[in-house]
Amino acid sequence: MPDVAKPKLTLTRLLEMKAAGEPIVMVTAYDFPGARAAERAGVDAILVGDSAAQVVLGYESTAQISVDELLTLARAARRGAPATFLVCDLPFGSTEVSDAQAIETAVRFVREAGADAVKLEGGGPERLERIRAIVAAGVPVVGHLGLTPQTATMLGGYRAQGRTVESARRLVAETMAVQDAGVCALVIEAVPTDVVAKILPRVAVPVIGIGAGPADGQVLVLHDLIGITEGRTPVFVKRFAELGTAMADAIADYSDEVRGGRFPADEHQYRSAPEAVAAARAAIEEGGGVR
């Protein structure tokens, strides 16, 4: 794995990459080792996504993770990747009450976790108000359209968007609206490639695709791409490794060696000087008391 030394990536650099046609690489990370590996691999941006609810914390949906839980993960990711552009999701329920609540949540991710931007799902009127308010407070916002997992039940479940006339028109309208509201970048999830291709030329900010075909950049869930997640994965996921199987095999080998008396071997044990052993024996014979 390459260990890439690079300056901190900025919003200006992201815009330059879009203008130059340089693909932007984003991956999720939720802890110190994952973020450190991502930074060493040379990714451009890390998303501390609310997908952590499922792939890290074992919840059934992304809507169940709390602000404090995601902040803990975000702080760890920042420590692991101090030079990478860090985007943090705003969890479900943390922005819906008011602009003031949304601003407070966004500021916490910047102040407490060192986020460079926050991500907010949706493009309806209320979401646009929240985007404007957070941007006005000085926090960059990444939009998220198409399949929005926090409100997937309202979309009929985890299914591709933009496949009908009505859905495609809504996606175009919401894209223009969030851009006008001031987003610094946009994630589009689970939308047909040909629909996204029509949108891209009209968007001035970087568009990061996930199940949306070629775009200005791509993002995948780390646990999906390295093969830790189980069960059926979305069609847009490519597994670049099968670490889940390797982890299980390693733990099984460890268990076998412990049960078979082969671990710990001599090379895994500490040795004392003879006089220390003699002193321990003497202390035991004297009753084991500490003087």
Rank of each mutant, 00 (worst) to 15 (best):
G289I: 02
V55L: 00
A83Y: 06
R79P: 02
D256P: 02
L225K: 00
I24A: 09
A168Q: 11
R127S: 09
A181P: 06
R259K: 11
A5S: 11
K6W: 00
D224E: 14
G114H: 07
A41T: 11
D44R: 06
A204Y: 00
E96K: 11
S66G: 12
Q179C: 15
G143K: 10
V135T: 05
G261L: 05
L171G: 09
E166C: 02
G138L: 13
Y254I: 14
L86A: 07
A106L: 03
A190L: 04
H223C: 06
R159Y: 08
F236P: 01
T12C: 09
A190R: 01
Q101C: 01
V219M: 00
P234M: 03
V110Q: 14
A81P: 05
R13G: 00
P192H: 14
A5H: 08
H223D: 06
G58H: 02
F236E: 02
D44C: 11
V43R: 04
A38H: 01
R262P: 08
P206I: 05
P91Q: 12
V196D: 02
G211D: 02
D266S: 14
G143R: 09
R111G: 13
L15H: 15
G114I: 06
R36V: 00
A177K: 11
E242Y: 10
P7K: 12
A41L: 06
V178A: 01
R127N: 13
L225R: 02
M26G: 09
P23H: 11
P7G: 12
V290S: 13
A248G: 03
Y270A: 10
E257S: 03
V237N: 04
T229L: 06
G231C: 03
A38E: 02
A279L: 14
P7C: 09
G80A: 11
A250E: 13
V48W: 01
F236N: 03
D3M: 10
D216C: 14
Q101G: 01
G217S: 02
G143V: 12
G42P: 11
F32D: 01
P140A: 12
E60H: 10
G143L: 08
R291V: 09
R262V: 09
V258P: 04
V97H: 11
T233A: 13
L47F: 04
A106V: 06
A197Y: 13
R169F: 14
Q150W: 03
A160V: 07
L73H: 12
G288I: 03
A63N: 07
T193S: 07
G146C: 15
E126F: 14
Q161L: 01
V107C: 07
V25K: 02
L222G: 04
M154H: 06
